[in-house]
Simulated scan of single mutants.
Amino acid sequence: MQITGGTKQKFIIEHALDIGKFKFFSNMVVGEFYEGVHVTHENASEPIRIAQQLYGATEPIVYISHRLNSYSMDPVGYGKTVKMFPNFIGFAIVSQNRYRRMLASLEKLFIKKPIGVFHDLDSAFLWAEGLLEKHSATHF
């Protein structure tokens, strides 16, 4: 994963889990699920627990789903998963695949947070930083 766009986000740590790799930044988590994985509320709970340990319950976080691989998701678990992390303020989807970007419209039905869909990580980071700035301006 290469971020070139002068982000303000500081890299903290990367965790390689059974379902994928997760990179934790100051206020963002970038997840890359492995090929063929079926993502459920249960197996998505592990990276959320790591995020809870790193960020606590008040630090605003944006999740960026870097969709390099083909995998399936159980959308029914979205609501439960989002509730586990109350300081989650937005969700970005990055994919070169047009079909995967179109699926984002379905995800908007399950995630009641701002969602951005992008072709590259730099654009997702810029959008997420704007969302974080807007959030901090209204929640100082």
Score class of each variant (00 low, 15 high):
Lys23Glu: 15
Val62Ile: 10
Glu32Asn: 11
Gly20Val: 10
Ala57Pro: 13
Val29Phe: 07
Asn43Cys: 01
Ser26Leu: 08
Asn69Lys: 15
Gly79Val: 09
Gly20Tyr: 09
Glu42Cys: 08
Glu42Ala: 14
Lys23Thr: 12
Ile48Gly: 05
Lys23Ala: 15
Val37Leu: 06
Arg67Trp: 02
Asn43Val: 03
Ala44Met: 14
Pro60Lys: 06
Tyr34Ile: 03
Ser45Phe: 13
Ile64Asp: 02
Gln53Pro: 11
Ala51Glu: 01
Tyr63Leu: 09
Phe22Lys: 03
Glu42His: 14
Ser26Trp: 06
Lys23Trp: 13
Asp74Leu: 07
Tyr55His: 09
Val82Tyr: 07
His41Tyr: 11
Glu32Lys: 12
Gln53Glu: 15
Pro47Asn: 05
His66Gln: 12
Pro47His: 01
Ile48Asp: 07
Leu68Ile: 12
Gln52Thr: 07
Gly31Tyr: 01
Glu42Val: 12
Met73Ala: 12
Tyr63Asn: 02
Met73Trp: 15
Gln52Cys: 08
Val39Asn: 04
Glu32Met: 13
Glu35Pro: 09
Phe24Leu: 04
Phe22Asn: 00
Val39Thr: 07
Ser72Ala: 13
Gly77Ile: 03
Met73Glu: 13
His66Arg: 08
Gly77Phe: 03
Pro60Glu: 08
Glu59Pro: 14
Asn27Ile: 01
Leu54Cys: 05
Pro60Arg: 08
Asn27Thr: 07
Asn69Phe: 12
Thr40Gly: 06
Asn43His: 10
Val29His: 03
Phe25Gln: 03
Ile48Ala: 12
Lys23Tyr: 15
Phe33Cys: 11
Val37Gly: 04
Tyr34Met: 09
Glu42Gln: 15
Ala44Trp: 01
Val76Arg: 12
Asn43Ala: 05
Lys21Gly: 02
Ile48Tyr: 14
Val29Glu: 05
Phe25Ser: 00
Tyr78Gly: 02
Glu59Thr: 14
Phe22Thr: 00
Glu59Gln: 14
Gln52Pro: 01
Val30Asn: 02
Gly20Thr: 04
Ala44His: 07
Phe22Leu: 03
Gln53Cys: 10
His38Leu: 09
Gly31Asp: 00
Val76Asn: 14
Tyr63Met: 11
Ser45Gln: 14
Ile61Gly: 00
Phe25Asn: 00
Glu59Lys: 13
Pro75Gln: 06
Thr58Val: 11
His38Val: 04
Phe25Glu: 02
Val62Cys: 04
Tyr34Pro: 01
Lys23Ser: 15
Val37Glu: 05
Asp74His: 10
Lys21Tyr: 07
Gln53Ile: 11
Met28Pro: 03
Lys23Gln: 15
Pro75Glu: 05
Val62Asn: 02
Val82Met: 14
Phe33Thr: 07
Ile64Leu: 01
Gly31Glu: 01
Arg67Pro: 00
Pro75Trp: 11
Phe24Arg: 00
Ser70Pro: 12
Ser26Cys: 10
Asn69Gly: 04
Met28Cys: 12
Ile50Tyr: 09
Gly31Trp: 00
Ile48Trp: 09
Leu68Phe: 04
Val30Pro: 00
His38Asp: 10
Asn69Gln: 15
Ala51Ile: 02
Leu68Pro: 01
Pro47Met: 03
Leu54Tyr: 05
Tyr63Cys: 03
Met73Cys: 12
Gly20Met: 08
Ala51Leu: 09
Glu35Arg: 11
Ser70Met: 15
Lys23Val: 11
Thr40Arg: 06
Gln52Lys: 15
Val76Trp: 13
Ile48Glu: 06
Ser70Cys: 13
Gly20Ser: 11
Met28Gln: 11
Phe33Val: 08
Ser65Leu: 04
Gly77Leu: 04
